[in-house]
């Protein structure tokens, strides 16, 4: 798909700048330019497409849908899938949580949405396609959705409502079906400028992280020997996955910064499953989000929430290593 870009950058780095294609600097520079441009193109494309989907399925309508329909368990899968297609900033997690509870959506279903939302987002998808190809991306998205569904279901069965803060429990008792806020019908051409502006805005905010990530990745690419990590993290080491995940939980970054580094780690010998599990832990669980949630639930519930997700991520890491 990007052969033309590969050749163009080779022309620039090796012929115009004059670095040898055998040299470390030449290698690193080629990697940096090629990856940055490819990723930027993909980022814009995916964010734009997701923007269109979101314009037609705004979060208010998703909530109204989940609050109206009781679907014999399928609501967990739906909430998790909706979480994958709706982007939101982690500082929205509290209003979203309360808003869902207020709409009478069960706690487990709300959790399903909250788990998948940061895990599968448009930035992660674009970077995944660019770095690992379509097949691995689909596997990542699929397992993110399954993880959210299972996590939500398990948390829902645990009857954790008493562990919510008093205020949240009060909101829960007054829950009622919420109607979607009606924006009126607008044509595609009316929506387009807003979607494009949003896409540019998102690309602009993650740009720096992507470039730093690719920069570090490029340096590692040029200077760390192939197979370097294999001596430390191999598929045979049964503790590699849990250690990677537990290290990842307190780290907080977005997919944009972590993925370029993970790509190089995989190239240099870290098993893909272990790397994906690490990334899920970094992106999906963050301590700042945990402290924000303190306003709506007790520490005990936050610990149960984090514990369940950590456990599920570790399991999926092992599964990935088996499949990939």
């Amino acid at each position: 798909m990007f052969d033309w870009l590969d050749q163009l950058i080779a022309l620039l780095v090796y012929d115009t700048i004059g670095l040898s294609s055998e040299s470390r600097w030449g290698h690193a520079l080629h990697f940096f330019f090629y990856d940055s441009i490819k990723i930027l193109l993909l980022l814009f494309l995916i964010i734009f497409l997701m923007g269109i989907v979101n314009s037609y399925f705004p979060i208010d309508r998703i909530r109204a849908f989940l609050s109206r329909n009781k679907l014999y368990g399928a609501e967990y899968l739906l909430a998790s899938t909706f979480g994958a297609i709706t982007p939101f900033c982690s500082c929205s997690s509290v209003p979203l949580f309360i808003g869902f509870v207020k709409g009478g959506i069960p706690l487990g279903v709300t959790f399903a949405f909250l788990i998948t939302s940061p895990l599968v987002n448009e930035v992660a998808i674009a970077l995944f396609i660019g770095m690992f190809g379509l097949k691995t991306t689909l596997l990542y998205v699929g397992s993110g959705i399954v993880l959210g569904t299972l996590g939500g279901y398990v948390l829902g069965r645990l009857k954790l409502e008493p562990l919510l803060s008093d205020w949240t429990q009060g909101v829960m008792q007054q829950a009622q079906e919420e109607d979607a806020f009606n924006e009126g019908r607008r044509t595609f051409t009316q929506r387009l400028p807003e979607i494009t502006r949003e896409a540019f805005g998102i690309v602009k905010t993650v740009l720096l992280y992507v470039l730093i990530g690719i920069g570090i990745g490029a340096a590692m690419h040029g200077f760390i020997p192939t197979g370097f990590f294999e001596q430390y993290i191999s598929k045979e080491n049964p503790f590699a996955v849990p250690i990677a995940v537990i290290l990842g939980v307190p780290m907080y970054s977005n997919a944009a910064g972590v993925l370029p580094i993970i790509q190089v780690m995989v190239q240099k010998g870290v098993p893909l499953g272990t790397a994906i599990a690490f990334m899920m832990a970094v992106v999906g669980l963050s301590l700042p989000e945990g402290t924000l949630l303190k306003k709506v639930m007790s520490w005990k519930l936050i610990a149960i929430f984090f514990g369940t997700i950590t456990f599920l991520i570790i399991v999926s890491g092992y599964l990935f290593n088996l499949i990939l």
């Binding site: 939101f88 929205s92 209003p95 979203l96």
Partner: peptide
């Protein structure tokens, strides 16, 4: 303040 905020029935900030 989150309680104040929720009076406006918003989901995202």
């Amino acid at each position: 303040d989150i309680q104040e905020m929720m009076k406006y029935n918003i989901l995202t900030t």
